[in-house]
C-alpha cells in the first residue's frame, strides 16, 4: 500500500491534573503540559510498524487545530512519520470548541486527497473523551471500521486488515477490505520514544499547511458548551486499623454488606 494516514491530537498530558476555571467557562490550560494523545501515539506506532513490515511505503501524520499542533506533528515526525499535514482552524476559534464532526470532515477531505490504504486514529482523546472521530470519519468516507483495536495484521497484497477488538464481552475479530479506518486501543502496542537523531532529522521533514476554510469545513461547534464545573466531591474517608474494624464498619456504618 502506498500510505498509512494517522490522525493525531494535541491534548493535556495524561499525568497533568486539570482545574476548572472559576468562571466555569472551561478547563484551565495555562502552563499545563501538552502532549500527543496517548491513543494517537499508539496509532502512529502501529503505522510505523506497518512501514517497517513493508506493508505501507509511507506514514503521513495529520492534525487539525491551531498553530500549536505543529509541535505535536513535529513529535510525530520525530517518532518516524515521513511527512505531516497541518489543517489549521480559524485563528479566532477556540481549540477547545473543535468537535469530532468538524475534525472528521477535515480528515475525510485529507483522506480523499491522500488516498491512504488505511487510516489509523486513537480510539479517544483524553480531554473530551468523545470516542467518536474514527467512527465518524469512516461513516463520511463510507469505509469499513474497526474500533478499539488490540491487534492489527495487514495483508497489503490481499488488501485486507484483520483486527482484534476489545469489546464489553471480551474480544471480536474482524477482517476489513481496505481502505478502512482502525482506531487504536491501549494494548495495540507500546509506542517508541523519539530518539535524538530522529528529533534532529524531523526538523527537515515537511509539514504541509492546509486550512479548514479551504477544505470547506465549518468548525463552529454544533454542541455548545454552557458551563464546565467540577463534579461533587466525595465526603472524606477514614483509615481503619484492621480488617475486623473494616468489616464492622461496612456492615454497621455503611450498610453495604
Amino acid at each position: 500500500m502506498k500510505r498509512a494516514l494517522v490522525a493525531i491530537k494535541r491534548v493535556v498530558d495524561y499525568n497533568a491534573r486539570v482545574r476548572v476555571k472559576a468562571d466555569k467557562s472551561g478547563v484551565d490550560l495555562t502552563n499545563v503540559k501538552m502532549s500527543m494523545n496517548p491513543f494517537c501515539e499508539i496509532a502512529l506506532e502501529e503505522a510505523l510498524r506497518l512501514r517497517e513490515a513493508k506493508q505501507v511505503e509511507e506514514v503521513v501524520a495529520v492534525s487539525v487545530g491551531p498553530q500549536q499542533v505543529q509541535e505535536t506533528l513535529r513529535t510525530a515526525l520525530a517518532m518516524g512519520a515521513d511527512r505531516a499535514i497541518h489543517v489549521s482552524t480559524p485563528a479566532a476559534s477556540d481549540p477547545a470548541t473543535l468537535q469530532p464532526l468538524a475534525v472528521a470532515r477535515a480528515l475525510a477531505a485529507v483522506a480523499r486527497r491522500e488516498e491512504p490504504g488505511i487510516v489509523l486514529l486513537g480510539k479517544q482523546a483524553i480531554d473530551d473523551d468523545c470516542n467518536q472521530t474514527g467512527q465518524m470519519l469512516a461513516g463520511l468516507l463510507r469505509w469499513p471500521q474497526a474500533t478499539f483495536a488490540s491487534s492489527l495484521a495487514v495483508d497489503a497484497a490481499a488488501g485486507t486488515a484483520t483486527v482484534e477488538r476489545e469489546v464489553d464481552g471480551g474480544s471480536e475479530t474482524l477482517r476489513l477490505k481496505l481502505p478502512g479506518v482502525v482506531t487504536a486501543d491501549l494494548r495495540l502496542n507500546t509506542p517508541r520514544y523519539a530518539t535524538l537523531p530522529n528529533i534532529m532529522k524531523a526538523k527537515k521533514k515537511p509539514i504541509e499547511s492546509l486550512s479548514t476554510e479551504e477544505l470547506g469545513v465549518d468548525t463552529t461547534p454544533a454542541l455548545q458548551t454552557l458551563q464546565v464545573v467540577e463534579p461533587q466531591k466525595r465526603k472524606g474517608g477514614v483509615m481503619v486499623g484492621s480488617v475486623k474494624e473494616l468489616v464492622e464498619r461496612l456492615h454497621g456504618e455503611a450498610g453495604v454488606i
Partner: peptide
C-alpha cells in the same frame, strides 16, 4: 470530560 475531572453542560 478529562476523565470525569470536569462535567460539561452541552446544548
Amino acid at each position: 470530560i478529562y476523565a470525569g475531572n470536569a462535567l460539561a453542560t452541552v446544548r
